[in-house]
Amino acid sequence: QAPETKIVDKSRVACDGGEGALGHPRVWLQIPEDTGWVECPYCDCKYVLKGSKADAL
Protein backbone atom coordinates (compact mmCIF):
# COMPACT_ATOMS: atom_id res chain seq x y z
CA GLN A 1 0.00 0.00 0.00
CA ALA A 2 1.15 3.54 -0.73
CA PRO A 3 2.57 5.63 2.12
CA GLU A 4 0.21 8.20 3.63
CA THR A 5 0.50 11.94 2.90
CA LYS A 6 -0.49 14.42 5.61
CA ILE A 7 -0.91 18.18 5.22
CA VAL A 8 0.41 19.91 8.38
CA ASP A 9 0.41 23.48 9.73
CA LYS A 10 3.84 23.44 11.38
CA SER A 11 7.31 22.78 9.97
CA ARG A 12 8.25 20.49 12.89
CA VAL A 13 6.20 17.30 13.20
CA ALA A 14 6.38 14.07 15.20
CA CYS A 15 5.70 10.67 13.62
CA ASP A 16 5.20 7.41 15.52
CA GLY A 17 3.63 5.31 12.79
CA GLY A 18 0.15 6.11 14.09
CA GLU A 19 -0.67 2.56 15.18
CA GLY A 20 0.13 2.61 18.89
CA ALA A 21 2.22 -0.42 19.86
CA LEU A 22 2.34 -1.49 16.21
CA GLY A 23 3.92 1.79 15.08
CA HIS A 24 7.58 2.78 15.36
CA PRO A 25 9.67 4.91 17.75
CA ARG A 26 8.55 8.56 17.72
CA VAL A 27 10.80 10.73 15.60
CA TRP A 28 10.71 14.51 15.18
CA LEU A 29 10.98 15.71 11.60
CA GLN A 30 11.81 19.20 10.32
CA ILE A 31 10.24 20.23 7.01
CA PRO A 32 12.80 22.19 4.95
CA GLU A 33 11.58 25.55 3.60
CA ASP A 34 13.02 24.87 0.13
CA THR A 35 11.05 21.64 -0.46
CA GLY A 36 8.01 22.09 1.79
CA TRP A 37 7.85 18.37 2.64
CA VAL A 38 9.65 15.59 4.51
CA GLU A 39 9.30 11.79 4.66
CA CYS A 40 9.47 9.68 7.81
CA PRO A 41 12.51 7.37 7.63
CA TYR A 42 10.54 4.56 9.31
CA CYS A 43 7.12 4.44 7.63
CA ASP A 44 7.64 6.73 4.59
CA CYS A 45 4.66 8.89 5.58
CA LYS A 46 5.02 12.19 3.72
CA TYR A 47 4.36 15.42 5.62
CA VAL A 48 3.59 18.46 3.46
CA LEU A 49 3.63 21.96 4.95
CA LYS A 50 0.32 23.72 4.27
CA GLY A 51 0.79 26.72 1.98
CA SER A 52 4.22 25.57 0.73
CA LYS A 53 5.02 25.01 -2.94
CA ALA A 54 4.73 21.24 -2.31
CA ASP A 55 1.15 21.82 -1.08
CA ALA A 56 0.29 23.41 -4.44
CA LEU A 57 1.15 20.22 -6.36
Rank of each mutant, 00 (worst) to 15 (best):
A21R: 09
R26T: 07
Q30S: 10
R26A: 02
E39K: 14
K10C: 10
K10H: 12
V8L: 01
G51W: 00
T5C: 15
W28Q: 09
H24R: 02
G20D: 04
Y42G: 02
V13Q: 03
A14I: 08
P25E: 11
I31D: 04
E33W: 08
E4W: 14
I7S: 03
G36M: 04
K10Q: 12
G51A: 05
L22H: 09
Q1R: 13
G23N: 06
R26Y: 06
A56K: 13
C43V: 02
Q1V: 13
Q30K: 05
E19K: 12
G18R: 09
C15K: 00
K50H: 10
Q30F: 13
E4H: 15
V27M: 02
G18M: 14
L57R: 11
G51L: 00
E33N: 06
L49F: 05
T35L: 11
C15L: 00
C45L: 15
D34G: 05
D9S: 11
V13G: 02
D9K: 05
G17H: 02
C45D: 00
P25F: 09
P41N: 03
D9G: 06
R26M: 09
V27R: 01
G18A: 06
V38Y: 02
A2C: 15
D16M: 07
V48M: 05
V27K: 04
V27L: 06
L29C: 08
K53E: 12
K6N: 07
C43W: 03
H24I: 03
Y42R: 12
A21I: 10
A14M: 06
T5M: 11
K6G: 04
E39H: 09
C15S: 00
D16F: 10
K50P: 11
S11Y: 07
S52R: 00
I31M: 01
R26P: 13
G20Q: 05
Q30V: 13
C45S: 15
D9V: 09
D9F: 12
D16Q: 09
A21P: 12
I7A: 05
P3T: 11
D55L: 00
K50N: 11
S11L: 13
G51V: 04
E19M: 08
A21W: 07
A14G: 03
P25I: 11
D34N: 07
L57N: 12
Y47M: 07
W37K: 03
K53W: 11
W28S: 06
G18N: 06
K10M: 08
S11C: 10
K10F: 13
L49C: 15
G51T: 05
L22D: 08
I31Q: 01
E4A: 14
G18T: 03
H24M: 02
W37S: 06
G18P: 13
E33F: 10
V13P: 03
L22I: 05
V27G: 02
P41W: 06
G23I: 09
C45P: 01
L22E: 05
K53G: 12
V38E: 02
G20L: 06
R12W: 14
Y42T: 05
H24W: 05
K50R: 14
T5P: 12
Q1C: 15
D34S: 07
E33T: 10
T35V: 12
R12C: 14
Y42Q: 10
K6Y: 06
A56Y: 12
T5E: 04
Q30E: 13
G18C: 15
G17S: 04
A14P: 09
L49R: 10
V48R: 01
G18Q: 08
Y42V: 12
V27P: 03
D55P: 04
A14W: 11
S11A: 12
P32L: 07
D34P: 02
P41T: 04
E19L: 12
P41M: 07
K46S: 04
S52D: 08
C15H: 00
V38P: 03
Y47L: 12
T5G: 08
G36N: 02
D16N: 04
S11T: 12
G23K: 14
C15I: 00
T35D: 05
E33R: 08
E19D: 10
K10T: 14
R12P: 15
S11P: 13
V48F: 06
E33C: 11
L49Y: 05
L57F: 08
Q1T: 13
D16G: 02
C43T: 01
W37D: 01
E4V: 14
E4M: 15
L57T: 13
P41A: 04
L57Y: 04
K53T: 11
C45F: 15
A2R: 13
I7D: 01
Q30I: 13
W28Y: 09
G18H: 12
D44S: 15
L22Q: 10
T5S: 08
S11I: 10
C43K: 00
V13I: 12
E39P: 01
G17Q: 03
D44F: 15
D9L: 11
R12T: 12
I7L: 10
G18E: 06
A56F: 13
V48Q: 09
G23F: 06
T35I: 13
G18I: 05
V38F: 01
D34R: 05
T35S: 07
G20S: 05
G17P: 04
G17D: 05
T35H: 06
L22F: 11
L49S: 13
K10V: 13
A56T: 14
A21F: 06
Y47V: 08
W28N: 06
R12S: 08
D16E: 12
I31N: 02
E39C: 04
V13S: 03
D16A: 09
L57H: 09
P3W: 11
G17M: 04
E4G: 15
S52G: 12
W28L: 08
K50T: 09
R26E: 07
P3V: 11
P41V: 05
Q1M: 15
A54P: 04
I31T: 01
E39Y: 15
P32G: 04
V27E: 05
D44G: 15
E33H: 05
A54L: 06
L22R: 14
V13C: 09
D55K: 00
V38K: 01
E4F: 14
E39G: 09
G51P: 03
W28V: 08
L49V: 13
A56Q: 12
D9N: 11
C40M: 11
I7R: 07
P3M: 13
D34A: 07
